[in-house]
Amino acid sequence: MPPKQRRIALMGYRSVGKSSLTIQYVENQFVDSYDPTIENTFQKTIKIRGQDYSLQLVDTAGQDEYSVLPQSYFMNIDGYVLVYSVNSAKSLDVIKYVYDKILDMKGNTQVPVILVGNKSDLRMEREISVEEGKKIADSWKCPFLEASAKENQSVQDVFTQILMTVERIENHVGQEKSSCILS
């Protein structure tokens, strides 16, 4: 059986660790230096629950609440990893804005999204509690994780979780469509 192709976009405020999460996942290394990303795409093939997936991870440029989000961030994207930094309240405000923009552009309430609080290793600098992140994810009806690209904590889980979310929503939508009866 050929691998399922999946395009996943990582979005969030600048310097929240989107690139660090992606590089840690794809290359098993932590990149400490920060060069602002314009846009980068990474490839990885994985197997989850017996299914092979060919992933294209779109590491987007950092967004802010005034960003014009390129149309390419909404075309042919299967799921979104929305990343904020636990030591930046501003990054959480920006991710709420990005989430609203995704819903506006997709015109669909069932968008595969997960919320990720990155930099959980910065315990002394924390501005956003686990409970606050979880509360927002619950209001969006999406999974929530905290991760640390630096300590490679929950990084694998982030990408497994978004793939499972894409599959769950796709299969649920497919079931709804197949039971539709027009009279």
Rank of each mutant, 00 (worst) to 15 (best):
P3V: 15
P3A: 12
Q5K: 10
A9G: 05
L10H: 03
Y13W: 01
S15A: 15
V16S: 06
G17M: 07
K18M: 03
S20T: 04
L21C: 06
T22Q: 11
V26N: 00
E27A: 10
E27C: 05
E27I: 02
F30K: 00
V31L: 05
V31G: 05
I38G: 03
E39T: 03
N40Y: 11
T41E: 15
F42R: 05
F42S: 08
I46F: 08
K47A: 13
R49Y: 13
G50R: 11
Q51W: 10
Q51G: 03
D52N: 09
D52M: 10
Y53N: 03
S54R: 08
S54Y: 07
A61M: 09
L69S: 04
P70M: 04
Q71K: 14
F74T: 01
F74M: 05
N76Q: 12
I77M: 02
G79T: 02
Y80P: 06
L82Q: 00
L82R: 05
V86H: 02
S88F: 01
A89F: 06
D93I: 08
I95M: 01
K96L: 09
K96H: 08
K96P: 06
Y97R: 01
V98N: 00
Y99L: 07
D104Y: 11
K106T: 15
G107F: 13
N108E: 12
T109E: 08
Q110K: 15
V113C: 11
I114Y: 06
I114L: 11
G117E: 07
D121F: 00
L122P: 09
E125C: 01
E127W: 01
E127H: 03
I128T: 01
I128S: 00
S129C: 09
G133I: 11
K135Q: 13
I136Q: 13
I136A: 12
D138W: 14
C142V: 15
F144I: 02
L145Y: 02
E146K: 09
E146W: 08
A147C: 08
A147R: 09
S148T: 10
E151A: 15
E151D: 12
Q153T: 15
S154V: 12
V155F: 04
Q156H: 12
D157C: 05
V158T: 03
V158Y: 07
Q161P: 00
Q161G: 11
L163S: 00
E167T: 14
R168K: 15
H172A: 14
H172R: 10
V173H: 09
G174Y: 07
K177G: 07
S178I: 14
S179Q: 14
C180M: 14
C180G: 14
